[in-house]
Design a protein around this nucleic acid. Sequence first.
DNA 1: CGATCATCTGAACGATGTCAAGATAATCTT
DNA 2: AAGATTATCTTGACATCGTTCAGATGATCG
Lengths: 217, 217
Amino acid sequence: MAHADLTRDVAHDGRPYHHGDLSRALVQAGRRILEKEGPAGLSLRAVAREAGVSPAAPYHHFKDKCDLMAAVASEGWQELGVAVAEARAKASDARHGLSEIGVAYVIFARKNPALYRLMYDTACDSEDMPKHAKEESSGWGQVRAALIEVGVDPENDHELKLATIASWCAAHGVAEMAGFKDFEELKAEMGGEEAFIRALLDHLGIYARHVRTRHAA
Amino acid sequence: MAHADLTRDVAHDGRPYHHGDLSRALVQAGRRILEKEGPAGLSLRAVAREAGVSPAAPYHHFKDKCDLMAAVASEGWQELGVAVAEARAKASDARHGLSEIGVAYVIFARKNPALYRLMYDTACDSEDMPKHAKEESSGWGQVRAALIEVGVDPENDHELKLATIASWCAAHGVAEMAGFKDFEELKAEMGGEEAFIRALLDHLGIYARHVRTRHAA
DNA sequence: CGATCATCTGAACGATGTCAAGATAATCTT
DNA sequence: AAGATTATCTTGACATCGTTCAGATGATCG
């Protein structure tokens, strides 16, 4: 049974209860449903059903439906964080590191569209950036570090902050836009979605330079 | 009564029925609720209540809840279109026209956050860009025209399309990111949200140039 | 072993999206 | 102008949802 497996590796701080570790099981069930049924099918009751417990059981681990969703989202932000870190580590130089972060971000969002949407919705509802996104180890810190490596003055906090936010805006924008079917043809022409994504992220820089150059002339 | 008013100005193609023009009334009620209660309070029944009809009445005008929401969203896209057009018209030269489009887009989204969210969600659900966004008169067409004015080769469809999409990504990213409370302090330092928005949109170009310049050196 | 406490179940409440059947009023036909 | 037709709205019902509360169940600790 799944019980045993779960009870096993959860010796973290003394919580091998009834079910084993329901809170973790619920979060996993949530992700499973999210992948299979999309955001529409993600109800508290469905999650409880999938985890094999009564509809009221989750309330002993999460105060709300939103609270559960936030937990699922949080897991998502953590995974995004490692995906980004891996991509940066693989890059050959600083400049590529920065752009690989963007690509990894967008690809993660595109591979888990429902999860990414949930992640963002949760962040918006709390009117705060997701806390996992702000930790040094994940997205925010990675971008910050990459920007410094690439030449942004670490002393100029104003500038550094703006550059980080702007990078994030670009990645988020591309992440949500890249899914539209209208672009399928264009993607095919370019040899796949990743090329499309790279071109867009790149363009978000180039195009403005183009404009400025022309204006300066 | 509101009935009479509505029945009056709806002589467009012969539909002064029972209520007057319920479909329009429902869409307006939807927007009112959206502003007042946020997206959470936007239920079919609440909309019907606000419009003064039974919960089943909307089904004679919209096949679904989603269908009604799509109608509300559609109205939003149209308004965004005129806001963008006005901004472009006011700009002194082509380059400013392009950036004013971006600013107008983001400001609209920030002034109607719930509506903008609904607009985007509806678009994502249909897996297609909203049709109103694609029409020549609105967002897409405006950006396209502005890009051509600014120097992008209209013959190079590939490039033009990419540039348009990229602009859109930037605007969307900034629109959704600018609302986080984490940035409040930074906004204040910069003298308000609009300055913050302008800086971000601008940065989305500058920063990449910065990187490229450094790399080329 | 018994008490205590966290955990889960069962049943219930109000609200929601949706549908079918019937009432009502506008439109069309003759 | 009267009857038939069609579109519009209401009523009532159903399944599902989020949430709560009283009680059952099992673990933990004395």
